[in-house]
């Protein structure tokens, strides 16, 4: 399979990317790692006239804690995240997800920013970002903007980004004592999109009471989904097995899966119930360590 013809442009700075994209208009698409976009172009689901290659822009590949935020440059590859000591030590939820994302050779090229900017509810990172209350930082023609993750995903492959906006950084509240997160997805085979996936981030106070909770779901809705009704049940509570069971049930009710080759709607709802409970328990275990 060969993509339809397009013009290729390489840029070396964010400024240059924005200027070129503004000039070329809506028929131009940015390409970072290209492992979501290029497969779509090969299938002719996407036929952009112009590809602006942003992968050669320097300075957008980093992982650091700064103030009360974890900051990850948008062009950081998933392999770089997989081998990063800070993430391994303090953000095990990232390792959970990356281990289950595609395969090592794809992760060598695929970037965090691309995984999020693609706006696909089947990608793994959106659920994590929703659970961890990330902020997406983008540069555009009118300057820098910070977009709370709850306002980022607008629809099927649609995000809050304007066509010329370049996603530059992801900011996540820094891990603290009493916080923990976990992610799992059920996949038919390695590298497949999720049949269903669940990300949980929880923050407990010294008495073990849940102060903050985030639950994100993968590939069981058209838009990456936050399980708000489930979070409400747990916030301010000492989390018990009964509450966990209740949230599992809510997750299975509130998700919006469709029957497809990965399973029937009923099966997926059942999977979501089970893995929501599992991930709540795993996140709690990590938070209590």
């Amino acid at each position: 399979m060969i993509p339809a013809n397009f013009n290729y442009h390489k840029v070396t700075s964010v400024k240059e990317a924005i200027a070129l994209s503004t000039e070329l208009g809506e028929e131009a698409k940015y390409m970072s790692g290209g492992h979501s976009l290029l497969p779509m172009m090969k299938l002719r689901f996407a036929t952009p006239e112009h590809i602006i290659d942003i992968s050669k822009i320097e300075g957008l590949s980093y992982i650091k804690e700064d103030g009360d935020m974890l900051k990850i440059g948008a062009m950081t590859t998933q392999t770089e995240m997989e081998h990063n000591d800070l993430l391994k030590e303090n953000y095990p939820i990232m390792g959970d997800a990356i281990w289950l994302t595609a395969d090592p050779s794809v992760r060598n090229v695929g970037t965090l920013g691309g995984n999020i900017a693609h706006g696909d509810a089947a990608n793994d990172q959106p659920a994590l970002m929703l659970a961890m209350r990330a902020t997406v930082v983008a540069e555009g023609a009118d300057g820098t903007k910070s977009i709370p993750i709850d306002e980022f995903f607008h629809g099927f492959y649609m995000t809050a980004l304007e066509p010329s906006d370049v996603l530059t950084e992801i900011q996540i509240p820094k891990a603290k004592k009493g916080s923990g997160g976990a992610y799992v997805k059920i996949e038919r085979k390695v590298g497949d999109y999720a049949t269903a996936g669940v990300a949980v981030h929880v923050e407990l106070d010294d008495n073990g009471v849940c102060q903050q909770i985030g639950i994100g779901l993968t590939n069981v809705s058209a838009v990456p989904m936050r399980l708000e009704r489930g979070e409400e049940v747990l916030r301010g509570q000492t989390i018990t097995d009964e509450l966990i069971a209740q949230v599992g049930k809510i997750a299975s009710e509130d998700c919006e899966p469709e029957s497809d080759l990965r399973g029937s709607e009923a099966y997926k709802r059942s999977v979501v119930d089970t893995i929501t409970k599992r991930m709540l328990n795993k996140a709690l275990e990590r938070a209590r360590q």
């Binding site: 290729y8 290209g34 590809i51 392999t79 050779s105 794809v106 090229v109």
Partner: peptide
């Protein structure tokens, strides 16, 4: 780094 050359321009 190992990459899949069918998905690389």
């Amino acid at each position: 780094k190992s990459i899949k050359s069918c998905t690389y321009l």
